[in-house]
Design a protein around this nucleic acid. Structure first.
Lengths: 355, 355
DNA sequence: TTGAAAGCGCTAACAT
DNA sequence: ATGTTAGCGCTTTCAA
């Protein structure tokens, strides 16, 4: 292996001069520097990243603590942070397990958490006696945690408003909400939906909430796999959720209830795609018979026929911002406690104009 | 920061005893060991991964040198390797750029390459004076490179045979091939298709090859984005390809040619989904009017209506095998020069039985 | 402007 | 069974 020592020996100087030459810091005679650089080049010298990391106490790596690589939303977030971090010469690693202990064995300078739940859990456990900078993605459910953890928030209240407004502008009054959780969940989407629709529905509000969860699925042959989905450990989502499958079920529930809704807002695009496919198999056409709007603005939108209208969440931007904020923290800059990430309606053809 | 030194001080022993206690290697009195471990626990001591990496010259990280995180095939490969590596206490990092130089600044013990093209390019450039163990995924185009690089190969000849056989067993005789490359490309799929079909088609073979590429797209408004797609640098694919979009175009080309084919084998599932959507918009039904079979067995299959029949390539397995082989190399075991990764027909509903 | 030396946190050969 | 010591490859005072 070619080390600084070898280069120094060859150049007839000491390692510290070589060091200074490489980092161009401190004094070193111009001529000498050129010669040293030339020799380094010739010898094929590259600084040893591990040694540098040990000395500088900077690994130039941050961790995205997320297991769910099946979920395209998180993949996009990851892509965003990889790109942002790359620009600042950082790598983003990914451990692929939900084992907090592993964090402590990883060569990282900071952590990005994919959502509030995991952040909170982390803070309550390992985080208590392990201080590494953390940034969290967030979706309006971050009441609990301290400002020690800056977050990049997507305003789900606003998202739901955009979805409902898009439908109302097209004449829809009766709107259902398809969700993978029971009504009791405190998901910001549900909350926002309720406050937007309560004056329309009054007491019947709950009927328009299509929640796919255990109780609704008794007797369904898929119940087992869903039970798996719902298994959590320490309040943390461990399994990847099959939103598409849940969407299909939601469509069935919707049909069974014989609602007068002309449109449905889906939990996310996967869920919407599942609903659409199931509607189709039941002979319901989208958007002629029922309009659908998704949430995410994912690239999977295009698989749907008609193209899915959705509220874009731009997870890449959110991921990029998380990375940038984390790196700012590492550089000692002070950062905002909460920053927002933009959302915007992404038009498709799955919403019909009525009346 | 809690170091071994502190633990040693507190326990009234020397660092090396602590070291031995932690790694349970070498001698250390049972009682003492227990006490040391207790103290470490109490102090919240964790070994410093960077220091260990420097000393042992093992970073416990391997690199997946792949930029294209938009492609679900590579994501699945990545998931497979993350899981396999995780079991052996390794992390898989991802740099997100195609900059070979960055490899040299990364804390890694080895590299997994996503395909032969990139491997070859790497060997021809940085690899020449930088020796890190490499394993490559491969698809039957690895003539060139030496056995210094073991590969995990998916037998695309076999894949095409499975696809064609599945169609023939359902009575299809006239089969087209939809590809995102010109006929001249040496893709193993094309080669295999040709050798399987030449006796059926004779001179007309080329007509049944639907190659979406520049020449075919003159006048198409999408030409610009495709030109982008086709831009390569140093023989290496830099842009993410829009297989779905190419599939849509392929369906149009197919219709224009008025072929008598009853079925089409698509380059991959994305391509197949694109074809299906376009067929649908032209009033052609799948599989009533035309059967489609994809390649990949990706989870995106489910978005299609009807569910896409495909040849499963199980990229997760391929990725896992790449990781295992690479780690075997790092452990000094000797490994096979080429190993295979299984493929298998994955049934759907996009192939109709005819006659 | 240069070089010697200490040290980042850990391991392992060697002496005790 | 334990401690001393010499590194791993690099940076950074500090003295020359």
């Amino acid at each position: 292996m070619v080390t600084r020592k070898k280069v120094a020996l060859r150049a007839g100087v000491s390692v510290s001069v070589v060091s200074r030459a490489m980092n161009n810091s401190g004094y070193v005679e111009a001529e000498k520097k050129k010669r040293i650089l030339a020799i380094a080049e010739e010898l094929g010298y590259y600084p040893h990243p591990v040694a540098e990391a040990l000395q500088k106490r900077r690994t130039k790596q941050i961790l995205f603590f997320c297991k769910d690589l099946k979920n395209s939303f998180y993949i996009d977030m990851y892509r965003g942070m990889v790109e942002a971090a790359g620009k600042r010469d950082y790598m983003v690693v990914f451990n692929g397990s939900m084992d907090f202990e592993k964090i402590r064995n990883a060569m990282i300078d900071g952590i990005i958490m994919p959502n509030e739940g995991i952040t909170q859990h982390y803070l309550d456990t390992v985080g208590r006696n392990y201080r590494l900078p953390v940034v969290s993605a967030s979706y309006g459910n971050a009441e609990g945690f301290s400002r020690a953890v800056p977050r990049v928030e997507i305003d789900m209240v606003r998202v739901m408003e955009l979805a409902v407004r898009a439908l109302r502008e097209n004449g829809h009054r009766r709107i259902a909400l398809g969700m993978p959780y029971p009504f009791s969940s405190m998901d910001a989407r549900r909350l926002s939906f309720c406050s937007l629709m309560k004056e329309v529905y009054g007491d019947r509000l709950k009927e328009y909430y299509i929640g796919v969860h255990r109780e609704d699925m008794a007797g369904d042959s898929r119940i087992l796999s869903f039970l798996e989905d719902e298994r959590r450990e320490d309040g943390m989502q461990l399994m990847e959720e099959d939103f598409f499958g849940k969407g299909e079920l939601a469509a069935r529930l919707f049909a069974e209830r014989r609602l007068d809704a002309t449109a449905v807002v889906a939990f996310n695009d996967e869920f919407a795609l599942g609903m659409c496919k199931a509607f189709h198999s039941m002979g319901l056409r989208v958007p002629e018979d029922i309009s659908i709007i998704g949430i995410d603005g994912s690239s999977a939108r295009k698989y749907m026929d008609p193209l899915l209208t959705s509220v874009g969440l731009f997870p890449e931007k959110q991921g990029a911002k998380c990375a940038d904020i984390l790196l700012d923290m590492l550089e000692g800059k002070k950062v905002k406690y909460v920053s927002g990430s933009p959302v915007q309606l992404v038009k498709g053809a799955s919403v019909r104009k009525i009346r």
